[in-house]
């Protein structure tokens, strides 16, 4: 099974030529200009990074009021920080506790909180992850090197066209003295997906 392999099953030169042909055709027809395409790409890449999700988490760790609002209505809370303006989807933030661990997936395709986490890793879009994390999450998390105690409940959240999820990881021990920016630097993308803890 090589499906989902970033390199793909077909030759890179062939698909590359086909995409260029489509782009040229759309430009010839006046449907699209090269500038529009570049702008669409740049706008996306500029705005999307896991640093945004990390900033939201650090705020939640240091501001109890924000944390409550974030868990009650993720979309409204992250808009306070300037994220997800005009987004069509809702954000639901799910909190890890001493007894519960959360992990996110999109079994049907690749729905993901892009605006807070940036582009998703290849494994998130793979059939292996999508099919198995809902059936045997503990085994899948172990493949990421994350071994959770048997007593920890695992909740898997399946994203949809309307709702995106993000995990609020537990704040690491011994970080009481850290400033918000320092805390944000500790947060990894996989911790926001739930395939890692901090």
């Amino acid at each position: 099974m090589t499906s989902g392999d970033p390199a793909g099953g077909h030759s890179d030169a062939s698909i590359s030529r086909k995409v260029r042909r489509l782009e040229t055709l759309l430009e010839e027809k006046g449907v699209l200009t090269g500038t529009q395409l570049d702008e669409a790409l740049d706008a996306f890449l500029a705005g999307a990074s896991p640093a945004s999700g990390a900033r939201v988490v650090a705020r939640a760790w240091t501001d109890a009021g924000f944390r409550s609002r974030l868990l009650a209505d993720g979309t409204a809370a992250v808009r306070e920080l300037g994220y997800m303006e005009g987004a069509e989807q809702r954000l639901r933030v799910v909190e890890n506790t001493a007894s519960t661990h959360n992990v996110i997936v999109c079994t049907l395709c690749s729905c993901y909180p892009l605006r807070l986490l940036g582009p998703s890793p290849s494994w998130y879009k793979s059939e292996a992850y999508r099919s198995r994390v809902v059936r045997e999450p503990r085994a899948v998390l172990e493949e990421f090197g994350l071994r959770l105690p048997e007593t920890t409940d695992i909740t898997v959240w399946d994203s949809s066209a309307e709702t995106r999820y993000m995990v609020l990881p537990r704040r690491p021990e011994g970080t009481q003295g850290l400033a918000e920016e320092e805390l944000a630097a500790l947060v990894t993308r996989n911790a926001l997906i739930g395939t890692a803890v901090l």
């Binding site: 995409v19 260029r20 395409l37 702008e39 790409l41 582009p119 292996a128």
Partner: peptide
Amino acid sequence: FGPVDTTDDTEPFHADWEARVFGIWNA
């Protein structure tokens, strides 16, 4: 579907054509 390839690729695209497809789609 077998084990998950957990390689942590941080690059959004793995070839220029992937970025172009995304750009066309987004525009």
